[in-house]
């Protein structure tokens, strides 16, 4: 479609993935992962896979964030490695 927008979305996707890997605060990492999921959903919608984008937006950006934070609340908030 608009290749500049697609390139910008893809850049944000890669940056948010790297940020999610590098962060030591796990709740911030979950937020970065939600950004990653949302960018992936937007990219999939632009490529015409609306069904997959729908699932990615509902599950990746919605439910998994809550589930990850629920899991982090049971352990240490900061990564130690």
């Amino acid at each position: 479609m608009v290749w500049e927008l697609e390139l910008a979305l893809f850049g944000l996707l890669v940056v948010s993935a790297i940020v999610a890997l590098q962060l030591r605060d796990l709740i911030a990492a979950v937020a970065a992962l939600s950004v990653y999921s949302f960018m992936a959903a937007a990219l999939l919608a632009m490529m015409g896979a609306v069904d997959v984008a729908f699932t990615e937006a509902a599950l990746g950006a919605g439910i998994t964030g809550v589930l990850f934070i629920g899991a982090i609340s049971l352990m240490h908030r900061r990564s130690v490695d």
Binding site: V50, D51, A53, F54, T55, A58, L59, G62, I63, V66
Partner: peptide
């Protein structure tokens, strides 16, 4: 999304995820 899943984007899985998000929001 559930009842229009055959003709347009959507379906059982997506509708379930959306309704689950609503229930989790209410529980939060």
């Amino acid at each position: 999304v559930l009842v229009h899943g055959e003709a347009s984007p959507g379906g059982g899985f997506q509708a379930g995820a959306i309704v689950a998000a609503g229930l989790v929001l209410a529980r939060l």
